[in-house]
Simulated assay, not measured.
Amino acid sequence: MASSIEDTLNDVGREAIEHALLEAAPAVLEYGVAIAGFLASVLTTSPVLAENFYRGIMDDGTQVTSVVLTPK
């Protein structure tokens, strides 16, 4: 009789652990991807965007500088 109770408790415990892992896996994966993206952006030595500066003067004499970012 004791072995059937132990088997039942082991099965219930195993199911609880499997359920917890299935619930937590997407969150762990999401954080892992976010950390990997952050590290990739910090450790990347070349710029991802090209900067183009355009300077001009408006009709009232105000100097204007515009920056256009384009993917490389």
Rank of each mutant, 00 (worst) to 15 (best):
M1L: 10
A2Y: 07
S3A: 05
I5G: 00
I5Y: 06
I5P: 00
D7F: 10
T8H: 07
T8E: 08
L9C: 03
N10C: 02
N10S: 08
N10R: 05
D11R: 05
V12G: 02
V12Q: 09
V12Y: 07
G13S: 10
R14A: 09
R14P: 00
R14E: 11
E15G: 04
E15S: 09
A16L: 09
E18F: 07
H19C: 07
A20L: 13
A20Y: 05
L21D: 06
L22Y: 08
L22Q: 14
L22I: 09
E23W: 08
E23D: 10
A25G: 05
P26C: 12
P26D: 12
A27K: 04
A27C: 07
V28T: 10
L29T: 03
E30R: 12
Y31C: 03
G32V: 00
A34P: 02
I35R: 03
A36I: 01
G37I: 00
G37V: 00
F38S: 14
L39H: 01
L39Y: 01
L39F: 01
L39E: 07
S41Y: 02
S41E: 10
V42S: 03
V42N: 00
V42P: 00
S46K: 10
P47S: 15
P47D: 15
P47A: 15
V48D: 14
L49W: 13
A50E: 13
A50I: 04
A50Q: 12
E51P: 00
E51Q: 13
E51Y: 12
N52F: 03
F53T: 08
F53R: 13
F53Y: 09
F53D: 02
Y54E: 07
R55V: 08
R55I: 08
R55K: 11
G56W: 02
I57M: 06
I57L: 04
I57H: 01
M58Y: 03
M58R: 12
M58L: 10
D59Y: 07
D60I: 03
D60C: 02
D60G: 00
G61N: 01
T62E: 06
Q63C: 04
Q63T: 09
Q63W: 06
S66N: 11
S66C: 10
V67D: 09
L69H: 15
T70P: 14
P71E: 08
P71G: 03
K72I: 15
K72E: 15
K72T: 15
K72M: 15
